[in-house]
Amino acid sequence: MKIIHFKSISLLIEEEKITYTGKELEPLWAFERYSIQRDSIVAFRGKIEVPLENMKDLKDVKEEGFRSKALITSSDAINFIVEHFDNPDLKITYLRQRLLVLITKEVLEEISGKRIVRRGDDLYYKGGKLSVSIASRGISSGKIHIGINISKKGTPPYIKTSSLEDLGVNVEEDSVLDIMESVGRRYGEEMDKIEEDIRKTKCLF
């Protein structure tokens, strides 16, 4: 486990594999598991198995709910869990999610040399869905999840998917950890820069 503290957020890179089930979107998950009592972005590798009861996207539930008890699945993925405690409304949380998705796209394009397409909060490669993502908020914090398929194995058969393997990215353990750190660092740096910009800008009135 590796922890990098920025001024406004902490990045934790977990070396052990964890299965993402959607429960990780509960408030204070990073504090309960890792004792991080501030804004955080936690990166880990593992399966994605989100059952119906943990789904936060009502549109997905209504469209796909009859097909499988585990609607969001992948046998191997990179996962990021972000939590902010500055009482963000849902719109700000979704804007932060888009920023994280764009940073992920930027990092993966630099590594692979391939063009990745973003549509909303999803990434695609050659028409195949490369990622899953959700933003939500509770009483105390806003939460974000993004998962990037390392392999297409275990992804839903009724959805065309793509993966880091399709991009030709090295998916050995050290390389995946480097991707986690690159994305997490850029997000942390963006959060710090935004905070700095807020504190240098004069009001209009």
Rank of each mutant, 00 (worst) to 15 (best):
T201R: 14
Q37T: 04
R186C: 01
Q37W: 12
V183L: 07
G65T: 04
S68Y: 06
K7L: 07
L102W: 14
S10K: 08
I81E: 04
L204P: 04
E109L: 03
I103E: 03
F80I: 03
H5Y: 11
E83L: 06
I144M: 04
N54C: 02
S74M: 06
I144R: 05
F31W: 11
G65D: 05
A43G: 13
V132Y: 08
S140Y: 13
E53A: 07
T104S: 11
D178N: 10
V101E: 02
D86P: 01
Y158K: 07
E32K: 15
I3S: 09
S163H: 03
S162T: 10
K2Y: 11
V176D: 02
K91D: 12
K59H: 15
R38Q: 15
K2P: 01
L164W: 01
E15G: 10
V169L: 07
Y34V: 00
I194L: 14
D86K: 13
I72C: 00
I159G: 01
S75F: 08
E189C: 03
E196M: 11
L204A: 09
S35P: 00
G188V: 04
L58D: 12
D178W: 06
K59P: 00
T73W: 11
I116F: 11
V82R: 08
E196N: 10
K126P: 02
R199C: 04
G138Y: 12
A30N: 09
T104E: 03
